[in-house]
Amino acid sequence: MAAPAPPVARPAPPSATTYSNRSQVRRNTLLGWSFILPNFAGFALLTLVPVVATFGIAFTKWNAYSTPEFTGLDNFTRLVQDGNFRVALFNTVYYTVGHVPLTMAASLLLALALNRKLRGVAFFRTAAFFPYITSIVAVAVVWNMLYNPTQGPINQFLLTLGLEDPPGWTSDPSWAMPAVILTGVWKDMGYYMILFLAGLQTIPPELHEAAKVDGANAFQRFRNVTLPCLRPTTFFVLIMLTIGSFKVFDLIVVMTDGGPGRSTLVLSQLIYREGIVNGRFGYSSAVALALFLLVLAVTVAQYTRNKRLES
């Protein structure tokens, strides 16, 4: 490559500013922007502007047929008193608290089980990944039938196990959320398994060998070698899963549509109903802002906790 070329051809990075005169900088800026612009134009208009706009609209009274009118914190005082909001907030947290640890455990177990050089292991990895690439509508319709309280295979199985009164799953307000969480775990674990597998493969085998020589058993090796080495992956998965769980939307819409009653109504759904169905742009943006701040707060908390654990 260009390696033999002496320093003339390859200015060290810091000197980039010193050797390049103003016209060079301008030329590079124009060139750089010419590459970025096709994507940036779409991105700025459809992502950046809306993100910023949410903050403004949340403080207005604005319906589909009116002009926006600044109302200060009115939307937020209404939010606190809104029963639907409180139920949706509770359900969103409920889903997250169930979905995050279960998916993490399941995907890590899958990754550990499949992180070996067995003949045919690729087949099992593919199988574990199938649910993730299956469309949410197909997933919902199959699981809703599996969950059928009287004739579904799941309850038939539970009956043969001797369970007298199996749960009503998606038709029972107190079981609907666990049912949705379970389906969510099944669908998502293949994705996070891939991330864990990638992480596991960065652990040098020598560490395990050394621990084995020192007489550590499989569980001790998992606790003292695998888990610490996997820390960056675990943290990344945790963040992704948390954000993903807080914004759960399509799974709920197609499986239960928030029901029975309001037992699975979540924040994203409330934003959709208020904003797009009812055309209450201002109020729904306030709900959206609340969701955003919630996600931000939890992410920052996890981030600082991770920083503290690292040091």
Partner: peptide, 29 residues
């Protein structure tokens, strides 16, 4: 390509990946 403001711009890109899409779907709509 090295030019002033590039990394800041990229940071704006990355930051929006973490923002839930539902949070800005109303303005988009």
């Amino acid at each position: 390509i090295r030019f002033p403001g590039r990394d800041g711009l990229f940071l704006a890109y990355i930051a929006t990946i973490a923002v839930p899409w539902q949070a800005y779907m109303i303005p988009q709509y």
